[in-house]
């Protein structure tokens, strides 16, 4: 908790500087192609960009302190509103991908550790490496090409739900899968699920490798440890040794990389959302960068940083649940 505050201050400064480092002049962009020097200057003044950089920074911090991330030049909406409205879409996709990756990679890693150099072990290392070798958007495009264009199994890759056939649910959590269920609308649930499958798989493929590897390595360490030998010497059954003694201990290192994996996935969203027309914060960030929309870019980076900090808090809490040593340190 103590480290969260300084990192946030650092992030605020860094986001400001980073967004100023973007190429392009927003005043020119927004004044339009027909603008002359005078109207560009007017736009610049109205955007506050004529002020000195320290002054701009002071304004930015002042706004932040009042809960404002500024107004997006492209959408004309407060950046905070834009982001909050789009965040659930990205979160739903990221969580779905993380869950799929965990469900596939953890058992694979465990099995590979229990039977080193078995078929599964080689398979695990092989596929996992191949999956990691392709760029995200390439896999996404390939999946769309095969499953939508060639086979027609997947719906059109245009967002979270096909509004021609289904009704988007009322927002409760912002996660369509949950909201449709809450509304008792199983039709729309299926619609939302269908849209989610391909982007989830494309994203999940990238988390497979690190999770499977970490699981395998930490399981090997745990199973080779002294306390597993003790458990065996005491005749404990194979399942107890494997899960209560082996896996519970391996879970520590697996949890520790989850924060990293999650933010890694959230970052990869930027590309996946482009391919699938996903109305998330990644797509928003890309258009903001193209338009040199300072406020939006700043807001995006800041939010990612806050999420990252929160994520690490959650990981620490989880680690404390698993490991008493962490719990007692504080």
């Amino acid at each position: 908790m103590g480290s969260a505050i300084p990192s946030l201050i650092g992030v605020i400064i860094a986001t400001f500087l980073l967004s100023r480092a973007l190429p392009g002049d927003p005043a020119v962009y927004f004044a339009g192609p027909a603008a002359n020097a005078e109207s560009v200057q007017q736009v610049r003044e109205s955007l506050g960009l004529d002020k000195s950089v320290p002054e701009q920074f002071a304004l930015y911090v002042w706004d932040l302190a009042h809960g404002s991330l500024g107004t997006s030049l492209t959408t004309g909406q407060p950046v905070a509103d834009d982001l909050l409205q789009r965040l659930p879409a990205s979160m739903e996709l990221t969580f779905a991908a993380l869950i799929v990756a965990i469900v596939v990679a953890v058992p694979l890693g465990v099995f590979a550790a229990v039977r080193p150099s078995s078929f599964v072990d080689h398979f695990c290392r092989g596929t996992v490496t191949v999956a990691a070798a392709f760029p995200t958007f390439f896999v996404a495009l390939l999946l769309v090409y095969v499953f939508y264009y060639l086979l027609g199994w997947a719906p059109q890759p245009l967002g979270r739900i096909d509004e021609i056939y289904y009704v988007a649910p009322d927002t409760v959590t912002g996660f369509y899968l949950i909201d449709t269920l809450l509304a008792g609308d199983s039709e729309s649930f299926r619609g939302a699920l269908a849209q989610l499958v391909l982007p989830t798989i494309s994203l999940a493929l990238f988390a497979l490798a690190p999770i499977a590897r970490m699981t395998r390595a930490s399981m090997l360490t745990a199973l080779g440890s002294d306390f597993v030998r003790t458990a065996r010497a005491n005749g404990l059954s194979g399942a107890t040794v494997l899960f209560t003694y082996g896996f519970r201990n391996a879970l520590l290192s697996i949890t520790n990389i989850m924060g990293m994996i999650f933010s890694f996935l959230l970052g990869s969203n930027v590309l996946i959302e482009q391919v699938f027309g996903w109305p998330g914060i990644g797509a928003y960030a890309v258009s903001a960068v193209i338009a040199s929309d300072y406020a939006a870019v700043q807001g995006f980076i800041l939010m990612m940083a806050v999420i990252y900090v929160l994520l690490n808090l959650v990981v620490d809490l989880l680690a404390g649940l698993i490991d008493p040593r962490v719990r007692f340190e504080g």
Binding site: D226, F227, G235, S237, Y245, R248, N249, R325
Partner: peptide
């Protein structure tokens, strides 16, 4: 053999700290 281990024959080891499960 597994049923006998821990019940009829038991074993203790060097470095008891690491020989016990640290999180149980």
């Amino acid at each position: 053999m597994r049923a006998m281990r821990g019940r009829e024959i038991s074993m203790i080891f060097q470095s008891p700290r690491t020989a016990l499960n640290p999180i149980r």
